[in-house]
Design a protein around this nucleic acid. Structure first.
Length: 557
RNA sequence: UGGGCCGUCGCCAAGCGGUAAGGCACCAGGUUUUGAUCCUGGCAUGCGCAGGUUCAAAUCCUGCCGGCCCAGCCA
């Protein structure tokens, strides 16, 4: 690795382990997998796992599978598998094989029979409540079930009948025979199979019994010859069980489970259950509401795959619980958008300006750059006329000295157009300023003066007769609390101002044909994309520009 | 008071016995027809705390302190 690469190629303890496994010859190729359960939409936390698993495979020239962990049919749905596939594709990763745990139901079942034959698993008739009682507590050992020493023949018979659908849900359970006194509760004869007469999205009504996660995951990994099985910290206690199952079962490989800390982002939540609740309780419009930390929400909001991937590279991978600041994500988004977004002008809160000395009815075309630093992005023509709109915020009746914008007697530059000086303003009956009267300097066409006088402020504008009307959605953080998930009721901390809908915004004419997926910078206000779910002309603000003035203004107050 | 794991700058994060990378944030300047971008500089005598080993410790040892996870027939 060269010195230049040090900042761009992430290094972390997992990559170090993989590198040494490759160096030592333990493995000759890397095989990972991203194993979502299709019971909800993917969020930014999953993006971290996706970038890790696919990223590692990519960088070590290995492969990564996309595997749906679909062993709980009651909560899973095809809607979710399709959304997940779309999201992974959007992030621009390519999987080796697309698999489902349900593909292995028969093998899993066969392995279970083998386990029973080895005397390592038994059918228990204890009820769920009894099992909980028998399990013991964190500080006390559990008790062995009366069925623990059922004969192998009887276990085989019972398990076969479970599979045949002879029993009602909950009547029997297949358990591993490990150690009821283990200090690790996961090892106290964990459940392997439960009876659940539920219809499965893929296997239909073939199975009245479904395997549990601990049993399924490790075997699925082994079947796919996964070399490094990366998962989050809460599964650390499950690793002994992961290894136990693979030690009992005859598989060709024994993947290594490695745990890392899940992503936590300040002022939002990354829990499928809670996100689901936001949708169900209508706090947001859906899983893809642009305020949601879901991948589909971020996509609709205008985040780019590159920015999400960059973010994941920056935050690192460790075993430490941490909370990432939103600013890191926003920085990644701004960095990518600054590079690629097309510059245009859009007035969000219009204030009419009449240029008194500009000829009535005259219209002239001015040339604007599509990107200030990138000539190759070209230019476009914009229309200028006697009546224009500027941003309300760009005029102040009583302006402080450092306010480089309009006020009576002050001169500013209209971007790419002329210098104008405010001479007067009009108020309505409520005392609200509704119009500005200005004079322009004909010598400053294009935005520079022959006398070279310095103009501190440049503001954006749009010609009244040429602008298109649009709605604009402004988004702010969804929660007012940095850790809503840690509160008793996270819904109490919803930010009432997370969405501001602006109507009749005045945008540059070219935006009438704006297409979803094209990123724009409305100069001086932020990055925007056309909303994908609305027919009328509606834009979503992806993120604001950095605003030093807002910061100064705030400090002065 | 069972087990597992974690503590390096406000937020992340390198570091793996040789004298504290980097990013975000923040602060101070410069350039600028976006108060944007960009550029320059500043920002841990210190690595949870206390002892010990060593010529040398964030790195090794011991003991504390603090935090997270586990008692679903969820994943």
């Amino acid at each position: 690795m060269s010195a230049e690469d040090e900042n761009t190629t992430p290094t972390n303890f997992i990559r170090n382990i993989i590198q040494s496994d490759l160096d030592s010859g333990k493995h000759h190729a890397v095989q990972t997998r991203f194993p979502p359960e299709p019971n909800g939409y993917l969020h930014i936390g999953h993006a971290k796992s996706i970038c890790l698993n696919f990223g590692v495979a990519e960088d070590f020239r290995g492969k990564c599978n996309l595997r749906f962990d679909d062993t709980n049919p009651e909560k899973e749905d095809d809607e979710y598998v399709n959304a997940i596939i779309e999201d992974v594709r959007w992030l621009n990763f390519e999987w080796d094989n697309l698999c489902y745990s349900s593909d292995y139901f028969q093998q899993l079942y066969d392995y279970a029979i083998a386990l029973i034959k080895q005397g390592k698993a038994y059918v228990d008739s204890l009820s769920a409540d009894e099992i909980r009682e028998y399990r013991g507590t964190l500080t006390e050992a559990g008790k062995e079930s009366p069925d623990r020493n059922r004969s192998i023949e009887e276990n085989l018979d019972l398990f076969a009948r479970m599979r045949a659908g002879e029993f009602e849900d909950g009547k029997y359970l297949l358990r591993a025979k490990i150690d009821m006194a283990s200090p690790n509760i996961n090892m106290r004869d964990p459940a392997l199979y439960r009876i659940k007469k539920a219809h499965h999205q893929r296997t239909g009504d073939d199975w009245p019994i479904y395997p549990m996660y601990d049993y399924t995951h490790c075997i699925s990994d082994a079947i796919e010859n996964i070399t490094h099985s990366l998962c989050t910290l809460e599964f650390e206690d499950h690793r002994p069980l992961y290894d136990w199952v693979l030690d009992q079962v005859r598989t060709d490989s024994h993947p290594q489970q490695i745990e890392f800390a899940r992503l936590q982002l300040k002022y939002t939540i990354t829990s499928k259950r809670k996100l689901n609740q936001l949708v169900t309780d209508k706090h947001v419009s859906g899983w893809d509401d642009p305020r949601m930390p879901t991948i589909s929400g971020m996509r609709r909001r205008g985040y780019t795959p590159a920015s999400v991937r960059d973010f994941c590279d920056r935050i690192g991978v460790t075993k430490k619980d941490s909370f990432i600041e939103m600013a890191v994500l926003e920085n990644s988004v701004r960095e990518d958008l600054n590079e690629h977004a097309v510059r245009v002008m859009g007035v969000l809160n219009p204030l009419k300006v009449t240029i008194e000395n500009y000829p009535e009815g005259q219209v002239e075309g001015l040339t604007a750059k599509n990107h200030p630093q990138k000539e190759e992005m070209g230019t476009r023509e914009i229309s200028f006329s006697k009546t224009i709109y500027i941003e309300r915020d760009d005029f102040l009746e009583d302006a402080p000295k450092k306010f480089f914008r309009l006020s009576v007697g002050r001169e500013v530059r209209l971007r790419y157009a002329y210098y104008i000086t405010c001479t007067d303003f009009v108020k309505d009956e409520n005392g609200e300023v509704i119009e500005l009267i200005c004079r322009y300097d004909p010598e400053t066409r294009g935005g520079s003066s022959p006398d070279g006088r310095k103009i501190k402020g440049t503001i954006h504008w749009v010609s009244a007769g040429h602008a298109v009307d649009a709605s604009v959605n402004l988004y702010d953080r969804l929660f007012t609390h940095p850790n809503p998930a840690g509160c008793d009721d996270f819904s109490e901390h919803l930010n009432p101002e997370s969405l501001t809908v602006l109507t009749r915004c005045k945008l540059e004419a070219c935006l009438a044909e704006a297409r979803t997926g094209i990123h724009y910078q409305f100069e001086r206000t932020g990055y925007f994309v056309r909303d994908s779910e609305t027919d009328s002309l509606t834009f979503n603000r992806t993120v604001t520009l950095r605003d030093t003035w807002a910061k100064i203004d705030k400090q002065n107050q």
